[in-house]
């Protein structure tokens, strides 16, 4: 479903992603793990078309991606951002935020779609005409997920979707994401610094360090501690240590 080959990204003279290649099968959830500055979010944003200045080859559903993305791409690929406080327009109601993708893509039947989208992410009807600042962090992230899914994409890019949330809310959002993934047969890429979160949602994952992928391994290998690269082993050890 998603192919990335020899991707390089430059920010000015900074070479932030170096020769990254991976494939994600349809219906699979793929994790990108690493510490800050490892380039994991940059890979995701580059796939999403939010970064210029890349070379290599990327394709989604067999279609190669150029420097500019067309509307069809954005109907197929959607993204959820890390900070639910920052990713919702502060002057727009939930209703307006959810209506925007429908207007852009000319999808009819906005009324029932918005109601359905709110139900799908378990937001009360009363939340519909509220502004983001009137919602809790978890509710905001649900709105962001509803927005991403309202135009029926097949690929969902998740950039640290729960790291700004409390653990109890994180559990709810992770459950919601796994339910939605099941129900809609979504292909996902999940970027996170938290190995446990990645292991919970993903079948396979890539470990990044200094802009490179150092290792790609399966969830089972991760849980079993069968990592070959020392950086992965360090991350696993640290994660176990923090779990106590």
């Amino acid at each position: 479903m998603i192919e990335v080959e020899h991707l390089n990204v430059h920010f000015g003279s900074n070479h932030v992603v170096r020769d990254v290649s991976f494939r994600v099968a349809a219906g699979e959830t793929f994790g990108l793990v690493g510490e800050s500055g490892s380039g994991k979010s940059t890979v995701l944003r580059t796939i999403a078309g939010l970064n210029a200045g890349w070379d290599g080859r990327m394709a989604v559903a067999g279609q190669a991606l150029g420097p500019r993305r067309d509307r069809a791409f954005f109907q197929r690929v959607q993204m959820v951002f890390q900070d639910p406080y920052g990713s919702l327009h502060p002057r727009q109601t939930v209703d307006r935020i959810l209506a925007e993708p429908l207007e852009v893509h000319g999808i009819p039947d906005a009324e029932s779609r918005i109601t359905r989208a709110l139900e799908e992410v378990a937001l009360p009807r009363t939340a519909r005409f509220r502004y983001p600042h009137q919602l809790s962090g978890g509710q905001r992230q649900r709105v962001a997920i509803a927005r991403a899914l309202i135009a029926d994409p097949s690929v969902l890019l998740l950039d640290e979707p729960t790291s700004a949330l409390d653990v109890s809310v994180q559990a709810e959002v992770l459950n919601l994401l796994s339910d939605l993934r099941e129900a809609r047969q979504l292909t996902c890429i999940l970027v996170s610094h938290n190995l446990a979160v990645v292991a919970h949602l993903c079948e396979r994952l890539a470990v990044m360090q200094g802009g490179r992928i150092v290792e790609i391994l399966s969830e089972a290998e991760l849980r079993a501690g069968q990592a070959r690269h020392s950086h992965t082993q360090d991350l696993i050890a640290l994660s176990h240590e923090l779990e106590g």
């Binding site: 078309g49 954005f74 959607q78 920052g86 919702l88 327009h89 893509h105």
Partner: peptide, 10 residues
Amino acid sequence: DYIAAVRMTG
């Protein structure tokens, strides 16, 4: 991010 999110709507 909210502008990035709007750009993501196409």
